[in-house]
Design a protein around this nucleic acid. Sequence first.
DNA 1: CGAAAGCCATCTCATAACATGATAGTTACT
DNA 2: AGTAACTATCATGTTATGAGATGGCTTTCG
Lengths: 298, 298
Amino acid sequence: MQLKSLRLFMAVAETGSFVAASQRLHTVQSNVTAHIKKLEEELGAQLIHRNGQARLTSAGYALVEYATRILVAHDEALDLFTRDQGACGRLRIGAMETTMALRLPPILAAYHTAYPEVDITLTTGPTAELTELLRAGEVEGVFVAGRLEHHRYHLLNVFSEQLVLVGPKPMSSMPSSEQWLASTFLAFRQGCSYRQRIELLLASYGINAIRIFEFGTLDAMLGCVVAGMGYTVLPLATVQAHQQRFDIHYLELPKPIADVDTYFATTEPGTWSPALSRFIDTLNDSVSAGCVYGRAQS
Amino acid sequence: MQLKSLRLFMAVAETGSFVAASQRLHTVQSNVTAHIKKLEEELGAQLIHRNGQARLTSAGYALVEYATRILVAHDEALDLFTRDQGACGRLRIGAMETTMALRLPPILAAYHTAYPEVDITLTTGPTAELTELLRAGEVEGVFVAGRLEHHRYHLLNVFSEQLVLVGPKPMSSMPSSEQWLASTFLAFRQGCSYRQRIELLLASYGINAIRIFEFGTLDAMLGCVVAGMGYTVLPLATVQAHQQRFDIHYLELPKPIADVDTYFATTEPGTWSPALSRFIDTLNDSVSAGCVYGRAQS
DNA sequence: CGAAAGCCATCTCATAACATGATAGTTACT
DNA sequence: AGTAACTATCATGTTATGAGATGGCTTTCG
């Protein structure tokens, strides 16, 4: 059975004539005859009466229902891919906790307003986990800190964050080694790229082994900072957004360590679903950002 | 886009391999490549990652939903027509009032029990109207009295009725001409074949013009018979079934006029939908009857 | 009743599409 | 690096398809 045959069949059913059907679908009458005949052979039943006017038989009447379902689904699929604009289905996105909390809401809102038919699934996690999800194809794109290094991905530089050291009291300078050793570093669970930054920073101070406490959510972590449990490192914008609710203080970090770019990473263009394409459009509209490619590396 | 391509695509999606997909659908790997490639060209998006294992891209993931819908509908249609047994959809049947009331219920019940998925639409009317409905394709089969004479139909002799004259009092012989002229003949509306019979009978008595009162339903007609409004002609079985409720009496009519066969008329076999085929099966199971064809006549 | 017009089935032919098998190129794994 | 498994590409024979012409059938109109 061919989609073309079903289209011709429906055209005959609707026009009541083989000739009219052939004209509607820009082909020739003999073609219509051949397709209908083949359909009839496959289904083992005459589909159309040929007594003067072409009317549906009982069997044809029964086929109409299925043909309609098939062709409607086909049309929708074609429309989705070929017609610009419009998206539906599911969109699975991953993001870091901090990005999710601060940067994503307006973008998601804009996207959802524009394409309400898309079901969005959000996953949060540290950069390493997100990268793995993307690699495994369980999400269609992830917001991560720093460039991905494992595969060939399409990277879109969407945000530039400035990391700051966050503590319970005002700080005028970096805590001393003694202070570090006396406190705990609060971080997201393994894989958080911010955490790697602070480890790098501490290493430059000659501090290698510090106590680390891992959190799953931002709020819990900030609560513990306020309680004086230790320090953490977060984007400046995130800290400022939470200073109303938490009595936290920050210290700017040295430039090369402080600057972190957040990328939206996906597989290469051309593999994008319409829903994903539209999301990237929305992203580009929301931020003015450059666009670079990551390269495979062993 | 071809159904074959979608099947291969789904096979690749499910097996995760072009080779496995080709084996599952009994074809060759290069074929799978070609079909997927064509699909990708048509949709303008890469559907499958080929990095070692064949995983769906975001676009492929989006297509799965539509492909599933299309293929499920296709499978159902094929199953419906090719697999024996099973029927669904709609079945539109017409029948005379008397057939509907007495003969059809057990048959419809049996059919509905066997094929609950079929929606049955019943239409009642006199033979002439039913014939027209069948000709116009608005019903798939009709129960009519006597052979259809207009087109080439498939006729199934399902019931043999014996017509009797029905009146309000016991009769030992045919009413006299005076009695006829003094009363009314109660009949279903124009087109009822029983009515034609009585007109034939009366004509043999030399009575041509009698008063006729037309009814739409059996109950109304019987009520009027009881009230002494006139005579009517009905199948013996129908009269006997109603003698509990109505004080009616009957007189047997002369053989050639009394005997009426009820046929189930449909278009020719081969045009039957599965639902209709199953119905005819059920009919054949319910009655032991011969099977004849009506012929076209100008 | 007969002629004409419409409509569909059939046929042929040229072209396009397809399935196949072999081969080359890629990637992942050891 | 070498191997194994996988996919892309190519050449080829076959099939399927679409277009046009023709003929038979039915309906319609004079």
